[in-house]
Simulated assay, not measured.
Amino acid sequence: MQREELARLLEGGLSLEAIGRRVGRHPSTVSYWLGKHGLTANGAPKYGRESAIDIADLRQLLDRGLAVTEIAQRLESTPSRIRRAMKKAGLASRQERNRRLVRAALARGDRVAALVCLHHGPCDHVLEGRGSYRCMRCRSERVAEHRRRLKRMLVAQAGGCCVVCGYDGHPAAFDFHHLDPSQKSFELSLRGVTRSARALRAEARKCVLLCARCHAEVEAGVTSLNVSVLA
């Protein structure tokens, strides 16, 4: 087979199989002549020998709690190759590690277990009433977001701005000031937001919305509220 002909077919993007069909030869024969003429088949890097996976790197990524797909991206490989390397090295995935740790923790009766969270990696998990472990950081973040959502709801219900200066910025900068302290059932602070939404709405109706600065001035007696207008 002539070098010029093979080079022309390769430039046309043809694979070994396509060239073989074009010239009536087996792909292995085409490959032989390519090598003889110093040419490289299209797609050769794709189908060539892949570099070995570093087991130390693989173990480190597994210890950090990464999933197989994430590890494959980090090591520029494929999930199937990562799984084969794990099996060969006797390494367990995050899910399998967690299952083993959970079984052991439940057998010991541990209320807190060191597991691997999908979002936070290795961290403490607490045993909940339903009988499963939950990441303490995930639970804390969810509670905090729930409280922020309730605060946004209450601020919007109260008009969304300070009744003294008109500030209408971030919800965290607002306080609820009870017009009649004797009617106060509980503080509408961050801790108070642990109540039900119904109870919070009822308590918020006893208050006016103030920004933190105006609230401090009202409490200090520097600024007064026109209760008749607010009512």
Rank of each mutant, 00 (worst) to 15 (best):
S185A: 13
C161P: 11
S185H: 04
M153E: 14
A173K: 01
D168A: 15
G169N: 15
P171W: 09
P171K: 12
T194F: 08
A173E: 04
S182F: 07
A172L: 04
V193Y: 08
L150E: 03
G160S: 11
E141I: 03
A158V: 01
S182T: 14
F186A: 13
D180Y: 04
V193D: 06
T194Q: 12
S185R: 00
G192Y: 04
S140T: 10
L190D: 14
R195W: 09
F174T: 02
G160L: 02
R195H: 15
C162I: 05
D175P: 10
L190F: 12
K151F: 05
R148C: 11
L190T: 15
C162K: 00
S196T: 13
G159K: 00
A172Q: 04
G160R: 04
F174G: 06
F174W: 07
C161M: 11
R147S: 02
A156V: 06
R149D: 09
F174K: 00
S140M: 10
H146P: 07
L150R: 09
A173R: 02
S185Q: 07
C165W: 04
L188S: 01
V155S: 03
A172F: 02
L190N: 14
C161H: 15
F176G: 04
R152Q: 07
V143N: 06
P171F: 09
K151H: 14
V193L: 08
S185M: 09
R149Q: 13
G159H: 02
A158L: 06
L190V: 12
P181C: 03
M153Y: 12
E141M: 10
M153V: 03
H177C: 04
G192W: 03
A173Y: 00
A173F: 01
L150P: 00
R142D: 13
L150H: 05
S182V: 14
S140K: 14
H170R: 15
F174C: 10
S189M: 00
G192K: 04
R149I: 02
C165N: 10
L188N: 02
A156C: 10
C162F: 07
Y167H: 09
D175Y: 11
L179N: 13
R149S: 08
F176W: 03
L179C: 11
D175I: 06
L179E: 14
S196W: 05
F174S: 07
A156E: 14
L188I: 04
L188H: 01
S189L: 00
V143M: 06
Q157A: 13
G160Q: 05
V164P: 00
A144R: 15
K184D: 04
V163K: 03
E187S: 09
M153A: 07
G192E: 08
R195T: 11
S185P: 00
V155L: 01
D180C: 07
S196A: 10
Y167Q: 06
R149N: 10
D175H: 14
L150Q: 06
G169V: 14
E187A: 10
A173M: 04
